[in-house]
Design a protein around this nucleic acid. Structure first.
Lengths: 221, 221
DNA sequence: ACGCCAAGGTGACATTGTCACTGAAGCCTT
DNA sequence: AAGGCTTCAGTGACAATGTCACCTTGGCGT
């Protein structure tokens, strides 16, 4: 499982002394997840801290009724603190993380984590910052869900998820899952967008036709 | 400003060695906030970590359109990590904390905080746990707002906020602010509750008449 | 008694969520 | 190529919630 020196990839480890980094390389395990795999979930709580070396994890929450909402994404170089959070507080939770691409992660056993957090200021700062970012992310989600209009939020997502050719390969159902709404709602709004020539649609595919207008909509308070 | 040894009040400090605690007592400042005062907010970001010695802080977020939603409450013995979170990540945010009762808090200067977090395992665990709890709280808020029915959520709040005589002195507007909805919606639902003899209402006051039925409603998925 | 103001009520309408269908596009198999 | 299956999307009716404009009421101070 030879990837090059991963301690170079994280701001929390990159500036540590060489001997500490060497020790880390011995202690940590490198884990891979195939695209679509569940990285963590209600039945699958890891007992160590994870750092994302490459790929992307989509963290979402779902209701009993089957609806779903994406909370945030963990990108390469970031740490996935939700798992540790849930490890600490004993409460039940229904968030899950799914590998959106192939994922390579570093898992650090709790003792190593504790020692690092104790001895290395830059590492500790990194972890606190990771927590902070997720708190802020969630504040944003609350704000959107509680106060945002669905067409505006959908426009934002389309822009977020579009590739460089302004194309998206997503189903209406998937978009509904991003926003925590129902497929029918997404369909309605997308049809409206299409009528206004903001987007084009075929089965499972959307193309942005009028970027500037869509942006204007996405930013309209 | 003589309150007795506050280090006894927090699980993160209570088990520290006596000499460390004495040092803390010298370094930390004790701050009071009158009921209704803003403890922190967009224009008022503290530069130190706060621990709540007594009282209760209501943390809420508001939209440009004037609506508001309560995210969680910080109770005595807990730490208010949101401020530090926002301190760390430079992002703008629109959460604010208001003293719901008179509040006595301990503020720890950043250097003291860093030293403690580095040297004392139990303190560090306390802080991580504080972050975790808030993350979990926010997950719950997202779940409620995204998937919950308003009548169910309102019933829950009524039960939460009622005193031991099953009375609440709140306006419809305040309840709307708790749940992130509009006053009219609260009024509608409360009138429905009243028709079903679950509650009684007078101006600015609500009394729970049928506890068990209200509970059933609050727990109905 | 009077006026003021906050609290609450009301109806009309827009947006969003739910349900029960229907239709259409892309596959597999034969 | 034809049929059949599954996933994806469209539709209309209705319920729940949010928004707006405006109206009453209760309590307070003068």
């Amino acid at each position: 499982m030879s990837i090059e020196d991963w301690t170079e990839s994280f701001v929390g480890t990159r500036n540590l002394p060489r001997n500490v980094r060497d020790k880390l390389l011995r202690e940590a395990r490198v884990v891979k997840f195939a695209k679509g795999t569940e990285v963590f979930g209600p039945e699958n709580i890891p007992d160590s801290l994870m750092f994302l070396y490459s790929g992307c994890i989509r963290v979402s929450q779902s209701s009993e009724s089957g609806r779903e909402i994406v909370l945030y994404r963990v990108e390469a170089g970031e740490s996935c603190v939700l798992t540790t959070a849930c490890m600490l507080s004993e409460e039940a939770y229904n968030a899950e993380g799914v590998a959106e691409t192939e994922v390579v992660a570093i898992t650090l056993p709790k003792p190593s984590f504790d020692r690092l957090a104790s001895e290395e200021d830059s590492f500790r700062a990194f972890v606190f910052q990771a927590y902070s970012r997720r708190l802020i992310d969630l504040l944003r989600v609350v704000d959107d869900v509680a106060f945002g209009r669905m067409d505006v939020r959908l426009a934002q997502r389309l822009l977020d998820l579009a590739d460089e050719d302004l194309q998206l390969k997503v189903t209406h159902q998937t978009l509904a899952g991003e926003l925590g709404t129902a497929r029918e709602v997404v369909s309605r709004i997308l049809n409206d967008f299409q009528k206004r020539n903001l987007i084009g649609q075929t089965r499972g595919q959307i193309s942005i036709l009028n970027m500037s207008e869509l942006k204007r909509l996405a930013e309209s308070v």
